[in-house]
Design a protein around this nucleic acid. Structure first.
Ligand SMILES: [Mn+2]
Ligand SMILES: [Mn+2]
Length: 501
DNA sequence: GACGTCT
DNA sequence: AGACGTCAACGCAAT
DNA sequence: ATTGCG
């Protein structure tokens, strides 16, 4: 048994971070809204990039934000047919909303052109909360509503009720406060800034955190304590990508410049509550992988000095069937703008054959692109598909990319790594920290963000949680509906010159 | 980083 | 109690 | 059998 010792913390600081307050499952709100227009980004092939949403407030049309996710290409086509007759060059709003509103975390939003619609169509969206300027956070499209008149669409939550009361500077009304939905609290920090050793109860298990002021990232003055606090705060985002996955532990007990080593076997090491996955090595030894499960397993890994989180592509329930295929761009003597170019080339190829793709910075030097497979295929099939894609990409940009396995044969060109799609192989998962100067994070992106000027240090331990509050989990689709490989490969063969070999 | 053994 | 030593991947393919 | 590779 590993040394996680049950001991009451003597610290007076530690508040009860485990009050059920934050344990509540985040329930999205839903409401009907009017479609008042749509935007189309400069580069996209889609019908539209987002819908501009509105509700009536005091008889006036009020902008409540936009939604850019939740519709398939097919649905978009049908919707566009409904939009066409309603297009108008006059904004239905009294004051024209800023649909390209930049923010601290998306300083260069893609240029989106707005098209206005007569406010007649109604749809339903879900969202996590309403921001202080009255727009939806993390909106997602749930479908059209044909049974509802646009004129009847008003705000459904009590949030605005309170906002209006405050605006008019009325005395606070207890009743209004009671109606207010529970505010999505920003998660508190796990560990206090003082004690070198602290014990916390996580998922019912006492975890001990030691050497908390040890500097893990000296260039950035980031400590082990900072690392724990980070994983604690991103837990809800990262855990879906670790859950039930065997983990390769890559340990850096002395920080990012100290010696490091891999650990796969946690037999007789993991605490008794940890879930494990048995495997047998090629020379017949029985070992146990740690499975990602919950916050306790996440923080226990971190406490071993695992700066990175390296999950399998498949889960224990179906270990031979990956949930996604990965195209891993590994630059050598390339600029990051070239990595961006290559990533967009991957996207173009995938777009052409109707395959959704999800990009993220690796946090180290490259970019990872995930393709959802929904564990319908084998690793071999996934790798075959990845090989087809990178071959096509390489044909487009042979000047600075390479498919050579041997580094010396790559001649400084970027490796289009498809071989990582094999059992037992891993890469740093989404939201993982990396043991690199800058305390970088492997950050999921929208494709609009994958453009020249992007840098690895845009996303770090310092800004990741703030960004997540704004963007939500951009990788949701990765664990969603998988592609149809058979159809897709056929389509690729019809469009491109795919050589089978 | 954790554990066993030695002084 | 503290110092010290030891351990902590793996599969595949090219050479 | 050893090395290179992620
Ligand atoms: Mn890589
Ligand atoms: Mn790679």
């Amino acid at each position: 048994l590993e040394g996680i010792i049950a001991k009451k913390s003597s610290s007076t600081y530690a508040p009860d971070l485990r009050s059920k307050d934050w344990l509540k499952i985040k329930v999205n709100q839903r409401q009907e809204v009017i479609i008042a227009g749509f935007t189309k980004n400069e580069d996209t092939v889609k019908q539209f990039s987002s819908l501009l949403l509105a509700v009536y407030e005091n008889g006036q049309l009020q902008y409540v934000g936009k939604v850019g996710t939740g519709f398939s290409d097919k649905l978009q086509k049908e919707m566009m047919a409904q939009f066409k007759p309603l297009i108008t060059d006059k904004s239905p709003f009294e004051t024209i909303p800023d649909v390209n509103k930049p923010s601290r975390f998306r300083p260069n939003p893609p240029k989106a052109k707005a098209t206005w619609l007569k406010p007649e169509l109604v749809c339903e969206v879900s969202f996590s909360e309403v921001t202080s300027d009255g727009v939806f956070r993390h909106p997602s499209f749930d479908g059209m509503r044909t049974d509802k008149k646009a004129k009847d669409v008003v705000r459904e939550t009590a949030v605005d009720t309170e906002a209006i009361i405050e605006e008019k500077d009325q005395p606070e009304d207890k009743h209004a406060k009671a109606l207010k939905p529970p505010k999505e609290k920003e998660r508190k920090t796990l560990l206090n800034p003082k004690d070198e050793t602290q014990v916390r109860k996580i998922c019912g298990h006492d975890l001990k955190f030691t050497s908390l002021s040890k500097i893990y990232w000296p260039e950035d003055k980031v400590t082990k304590r900072d690392m724990f606090n980070y994983y604690y705060r991103v837990a809800e985002y990262i855990l879906p990508y670790l859950k039930d996955r065997p983990m390769s532990l890559n340990r850096f007990p002395g920080g990012i410049h100290g010696p490091s080593f891999y650990q796969k076997n946690v037999k007789d090491k993991a605490p008794d509550w940890a879930k494990t996955f048995p495997y047998t090595t090629s020379n017949g030894e029985d070992k146990l992988y740690l499975l990602g499960t919950d916050e306790a397993s996440l923080l226990w890994m971190a406490s071993l000095g695992c700066i990175e989180m390296n999950p399998w592509f498949s889960r224990a329930q179906s270990p031979d069937n990956p949930d996604y295929c990965v195209i891993d761009l590994d630059p050598d003597k390339n600029t990051f703008d070239q990595v961006v170019e290559a990533a967009q080339e991957v996207r173009k190829v995938l777009d052409a054959i109707g395959v959704p793709s999800f990009p993220k910075t690796s946090g180290s030097t490259g970019i990872h692109i995930y393709i959802p497979l929904d564990s319908k295929y084998s690793y071999d099939q996934s790798q075959m598909f990845a090989r087809i894609i990178v071959k096509l990409v390489h044909q487009q940009i042979p000047g600075y990319t390479s498919l050579e396995r041997m580094v010396s044969k790559r001649k400084g060109k970027m490796y289009l790594d498809f071989l990582q799609n094999r059992p037992g192989a891993t890469i740093a998962g989404p939201y993982s920290l990396r043991p690199k100067p800058g305390a970088t994070v492997s950050m999921p992106l929208t494709w609009d963000e994958v453009k020249p000027g992007l840098t690895m240090k845009d996303f770090t331990i310092f800004n990741a949680t703030d960004r997540l509050k704004e963007t939500g989990d951009l990788f949701k689709g990765v664990l969603g509906k998988g592609i149809d490989l058979v159809k897709t490969i056929k389509k690729a063969q019809s469009i491109f010159d795919v050589d089978g070999e």
